[in-house]
Design a protein around this nucleic acid. Structure first.
Lengths: 238, 238
DNA sequence: CGGAGGGTTGAAGTTTATCAAGTAGAGTGG
DNA sequence: CCACTCTACTTGATAAACTTCAACCCTCCG
């Protein structure tokens, strides 16, 4: 499974860019031992990521690329549910139970480990178990943010929040890429594609973002964007 | 900590009513061993349930009673976020990270185990670890249901869904108790208290439920209720 | 050139929030 | 026992937000 390309990705990303929260606090020796028990998988754009409940990867770290997770609604239609960006962890609990479906949006490299191997490693290295717990807590926090977004935010706040989150999760580089179209942004945020479009244009007209292309966003005013997310604490009364 | 009353609850509920998913597939000997490492805690109505990140109970099973979980919003106000009913598991990941707050709504007995003890037990009994994983998957599924509710359902579907879920989780007895007021139902479902009230009355007028008291609900027509949740598959086209 | 897929925009329609008023029941003190 | 009060709940009118429907644009690509 050690593609040359993937190996390069590992050395570039996992060792340098990523603060691999899963490996935090481990000795170099332990980290090396662990990495030998993980395997790298390369996926091409559009390629589905298998997730049989049986031999499902217990943990999977995204070394590079982007994944989308789709779930079925009551009518059986697929809807975009979540995105996973480079450096993030795939839920150990995952969508396998809820009938979810994972696929790569770009050239994507995954560092995975199945349950049996991980169990063995975790027994040897208790710190690894703690790290996994922290990662899962982070995922709960993420879920909570989406629940707040869907339950209590206006359309404008939802779109601002999505853009801000993507921006942060893509590393706050100048240009942010929207890896999905307006309809799919709407599916994640509980809005129609028209409303998403209108809100994005509104941000552009307010000079908070620029749109060199419909799917390329440049964040011109991060502070203003954050204010519009609704997550900023309100002004204190005089 | 072994209150006489709590001990009674254990024998009544844990051994008879509950299918304690956490103890499934274990020998009587293992289950007994495990229960000696758990402790029972009694809480009175309104009493907060402590959850220090340090010695937080790693797992907690609700033997009887009801818990509410409140979280802070961006403005610092507390909002009802979720309810936990008898027989359900408290998230091992829990709201401690996200600044959540747990409290009892009635006389409530919790069967808890801290991280250290649970780790030791799980090392001895691998099946216990598997059971915990299944329980956590169930919680992810629950989260997904709420996300669908908040993201894609109408007010009428949201209220019908909440009532149906509470009904099922309370054991589908004739009478269902709403342990919180309309405003708090609204906080969970992303609606105003007025909308919640109107939708509940609409169900009453349609003879799908009866309301002997505002907080007592009798489900007269479970089928119709389910249809209104929006979770029923749509009619197939001819 | 023409078609397809995404994106944008406008007008009309629906749903839900907001504001405001009024009701019902439980508790309290005279 | 009767006001009085408090809280939760209900109901109506109005306003705002969002969806729906429809048209149109732009770019890519055969």
């Amino acid at each position: 499974m050690n593609h040359q390309w993937a190996a390069k990705a590992l050395s570039l990303n996992a060792r340098k860019h990523l603060p691999p929260a899963l490996f935090r606090g481990l000795t170099r020796r332990e980290a090396h031992h662990i990495q030998r028990n993980f395997s790298e998988n390369l996926f091409h754009p559009g390629e589905p990521v298998p997730r049989n409940p049986a031999d499902a990867p217990f943990v999977a770290l995204l070394l590079c690329g982007t994944l989308r997770e789709d779930v079925r609604d009551a009518q059986g239609a697929w809807r975009l549910f979540a995105l996973t960006f480079t450096g993030e962890l795939l839920s150990p609990l995952g969508p396998s139970g809820s009938g979810g479906r994972l696929s790569a949006l770009e050239r994507t490299v995954l560092l995975t480990c199945d349950r049996t191997n991980f169990d063995a490693l975790a027994t040897e290295i208790p710190r690894l178990r703690l790290n996994l717990l922290h990662l899962m807590q982070g995922q709960i926090a993420e879920t909570h943010r989406w629940q707040t977004l869907l339950g209590r935010k206006t359309a404008s706040e939802r779109v601002a929040s999505m853009l801000e989150w993507f921006h942060v999760r893509q590393g706050e580089r100048g240009k942010l890429v929207l890896p999905v179209n307006r309809a799919e942004l709407g599916q994640m945020s509980g809005l129609t594609l028209e409303t998403v479009s209108r809100q994005i244009r509104r941000l552009e007209k307010a000079r908070i973002i620029a749109l060199p292309q419909p799917s390329r966003v440049q964040v011109l005013n991060p502070t203003a964007l954050h204010t519009l997310t609704g997550d900023a604490p309100a002004h204190r009364a005089a």
